[in-house]
Computed example of a mutant assay.
Amino acid sequence: MRAAVYRSTGPAAEVLEVVELELPEPGPGEVRVRIVTSGINPTDWKRRAGLTGRTPDGFQVPHHDGAGVVDAVGSGVDGLVVGQRVWLYLAAFGNRYGTAAEYAVVPAVRAVPLPDGASDELGACLGVPALTAAHCLGGNPGALQGRTVLVAGGAGAVGHYAIELAKHAGATVVATVSSDEKRALAEDAGADLVVRYPDQDVSRQIRDVVQHVDRIVEVAPATNLELDLAVLRDGGTIATYAAEGDLVLPSGKLMTANVTLAFVLLYGVSSDQLADAVRWTSDALAVGALSALPVIPYALERVADAQDRVEQAAVGKVVLSVAAR
């Protein structure tokens, strides 16, 4: 099979190459998936660049997310059959076969049925962003009915799915963005109110429309904490999934308001919590509540350029189109 691999960490153009690998066989509890699309996340280029402190064991096929068709099933696998369309998540976590290849072998739990009405591009957009969003929202859609959620960075991948999942759960959603272009993306995702960061009196604009916010999905806690505390209700939660330098906490304000500050990294989420996030995402997907981000397509052979595009903070989702011969 053709596969993108890297054997050492470093710049994309220096360490990534497309090679021929022997077709892997699924072991017990695993499935092999013929990959159609491979979605790229910031965590993918950061790991390849060596920012996570991990080095490949021999070689690594990158990328956690993607969509394809089950090609072979290992022993002990229930619920998946050959020929079934699936979307993948965390494919390269503890596994050398990520989705930047014609085939990937993954634990069966990381392959989730993809409905007939959902495109392969949508399948490649899910994974890390949608599951992170679901976990930041508390993992339980029933708890959001009638609540108000603030999504910081509503045009990003996690922000996009935080808006859609929260709306699917019956919440009112406020989103913040940095530009009019991104405002349109957040509105398309279904946000009830979208406010630009550069505008004046952002907290007043929010409070003029909603009395308070119950939960915040935060992309830039150090930058936005003052705004968050200005609109969050007492006893509310700020769930942040991104780190941006040192965060200085006003402990008195946080304690007085009984604020819960949660830090989310999908790799460390428990299996039960991850299952909750997968279930919520799948339920929303089944009723057409989730949509693809604007897709920026690349061929497998241009994987280095594609990862660089993600590193440059492209607006939308960079996706490899992978076609098995």
Rank of each mutant, 00 (worst) to 15 (best):
Q307V: 06
R47M: 13
V15Q: 03
G170Q: 03
D116T: 08
L225W: 09
R215V: 13
P250K: 11
A171E: 05
A104T: 12
V210Y: 06
V195D: 05
V248M: 11
W87D: 00
I238H: 03
L265W: 14
S8T: 15
A108P: 06
V61A: 01
R215S: 03
L254G: 04
R279I: 06
S178W: 01
I40V: 10
G29C: 10
G170E: 10
V158M: 02
T43N: 10
G76R: 10
D228T: 05
V128F: 06
A143P: 00
Q312L: 15
V210G: 09
V82E: 14
G154E: 05
R34I: 02
G94M: 11
S271N: 11
A91C: 13
N140V: 14
V295N: 01
D192F: 03
R196C: 06
Q200E: 15
I40A: 06
T148C: 06
A262N: 08
A191R: 01
A284Y: 01
G146P: 11
I35R: 04
Q307G: 06
A284N: 02
I216K: 02
D308G: 06
A239M: 11
G94E: 08
E181Q: 13
F263T: 13
L193Q: 11
M255G: 05
G146T: 11
R7K: 13
G117Y: 11
C136Q: 08
G159E: 10
V177D: 02
Y267G: 10
R85V: 03
L300K: 07
S270C: 09
E17D: 13
V318W: 06
A222D: 13
I296K: 13
D44L: 02
A169I: 04
R325Y: 11
L247D: 04
G58D: 05
K167P: 02
V158S: 02
V310C: 13
V213T: 06
Q312D: 15
T223N: 08
G123R: 01
G127M: 10
A324F: 11
G236M: 10
T237P: 05
A191Q: 07
A171P: 03
R48K: 12
V86K: 03
V319R: 07
G245R: 12
Y267P: 12
